[in-house]
Simulated scan of single mutants.
Amino acid sequence: MANAHPNQKRTAASTPPTPGTAVTARALALLGSFDSAHPKLTLSEMARRAHLPVATAHRLIAELLAWGALERAGQDYVIGHRLWQLGLLAPVNQNIAELAAPYMQDVLFVTQNVVNLFILDGNKVLLLERISGTRSGAPFLRVGEHLPLHASAAGKVMLAFGDQSLWDTASVAIEKLTEHTISSPQQLRSEVDKVRERGYATTSQEAGIGNYGIAVPIIAPDGSCRAALGVVTQERAAPVGSVVPVLRIAARSIARRVSLGRS
């Protein structure tokens, strides 16, 4: 469940709007030009990544600035606080992240490791929440960033306990991020089988050099895997024998709280 490495900075720009696309779609394309690798963009960069004429981008950006979706940062643009405030209203944040926070704090207190909460987002896992202490160092992954399924402990958990369709996607989209990354469908299948058998997943410098992760599934009462809880360490792996039981207790508690919150 280690956090992002330089290869993950290669993210695609927005999908080109089709001719005659509505103004709303063009505005969304401009907002979609931002990602974790591009938190700040100039006008020309936004226009290029959104596949829009500079003049069109300039006009729409002015409207987005007025509404609060964008803000100026010198010569660059950044996502505005109004979008951040709206994001906090997303049900997935309220139903999982807020309910999980006390148990994540418990894991931090007991293990002294950075604690991560991941959810599935398309064919990757999304870091939904992160709790760390004052001595954890610079984060390898920021909240809102993604990791591929095959190179993260949380992703392996999703492959082991999630829908079969995830495997169909992950097994044909294996990108080698470091020399330690799983590089073949056969190797990934063997790893996922081990995860399913032992109930937890690990990574050893597979998403980034010097980063190690352990994750367990958060299983809903209906048997579905809605999220993964784990710890990440730098330079050396955390002891599985003492960390996994703590994660499992927290994961079960989170699952119960989420279930009660939705009943």
Score class of each variant (00 low, 15 high):
residue 260 L to N: 03
residue 69 A to S: 12
residue 167 W to Q: 09
residue 185 P to D: 07
residue 95 N to M: 15
residue 116 N to R: 13
residue 153 A to Y: 04
residue 9 K to F: 11
residue 144 G to Y: 05
residue 47 A to F: 07
residue 23 V to F: 00
residue 53 P to V: 07
residue 11 T to I: 15
residue 45 E to H: 06
residue 235 E to H: 03
residue 183 S to N: 13
residue 186 Q to T: 08
residue 18 T to D: 11
residue 62 A to P: 05
residue 150 H to L: 06
residue 125 V to G: 02
residue 33 S to D: 06
residue 128 L to Y: 08
residue 48 R to C: 03
residue 254 I to C: 05
residue 245 P to M: 04
residue 164 Q to Y: 07
residue 68 G to E: 11
residue 187 Q to E: 11
residue 131 I to E: 11
residue 180 H to L: 09
residue 55 A to P: 02
residue 249 I to T: 15
residue 73 A to I: 12
residue 84 W to K: 15
residue 180 H to D: 13
residue 249 I to S: 12
residue 176 K to I: 13
residue 39 P to L: 11
residue 136 S to F: 04
residue 16 P to M: 05
residue 205 Q to Y: 01
residue 79 I to L: 14
residue 66 A to G: 03
residue 72 R to A: 12
residue 19 P to S: 10
residue 237 A to Q: 13
residue 57 A to L: 07
residue 96 I to Q: 04
residue 153 A to E: 05
residue 10 R to G: 08
residue 105 Q to E: 13
residue 182 I to G: 07
residue 258 V to Q: 01
residue 140 F to E: 13
residue 35 D to G: 04
residue 82 R to F: 05
residue 15 T to G: 06
residue 222 D to C: 00
residue 34 F to Y: 01
residue 111 T to S: 15
residue 242 S to D: 10
residue 140 F to A: 14
residue 195 V to H: 07
residue 21 T to E: 15
residue 33 S to V: 00
residue 9 K to V: 02
residue 170 A to H: 08
residue 221 P to T: 08
residue 233 T to C: 04
residue 209 I to H: 11
residue 45 E to G: 06
residue 259 S to N: 08
residue 252 R to P: 02
residue 181 T to N: 04
residue 69 A to P: 06
residue 101 A to I: 04
residue 259 S to K: 02
residue 101 A to H: 10
residue 140 F to Y: 09
residue 11 T to R: 15
residue 183 S to E: 14
residue 125 V to S: 05
residue 113 N to I: 00
residue 231 V to K: 05
residue 144 G to E: 08
residue 193 D to I: 10
residue 223 G to W: 07
residue 118 F to W: 14
residue 47 A to D: 07
residue 216 V to W: 01
residue 3 N to I: 12
residue 248 R to T: 12
residue 14 S to M: 00
residue 215 A to Q: 11
residue 49 R to H: 02
residue 186 Q to D: 14
residue 112 Q to D: 15
residue 138 A to D: 11
residue 11 T to L: 14
residue 90 A to T: 09
residue 28 L to G: 00
residue 200 Y to M: 08
residue 83 L to V: 13
residue 125 V to P: 03
residue 56 T to I: 14
residue 24 T to I: 06
residue 31 L to T: 02
residue 177 L to Y: 02
residue 188 L to C: 04
residue 211 N to Q: 13
residue 6 P to E: 08
residue 96 I to A: 05
residue 177 L to M: 03
residue 1 M to H: 09
residue 154 A to N: 08
residue 153 A to Q: 04
residue 216 V to M: 06
residue 150 H to F: 05
residue 57 A to V: 11
residue 208 G to F: 01
residue 243 V to I: 15
residue 145 E to M: 12
residue 234 Q to Y: 07
residue 254 I to L: 06
residue 227 A to W: 11
residue 23 V to M: 02
residue 88 L to V: 10
residue 205 Q to R: 03
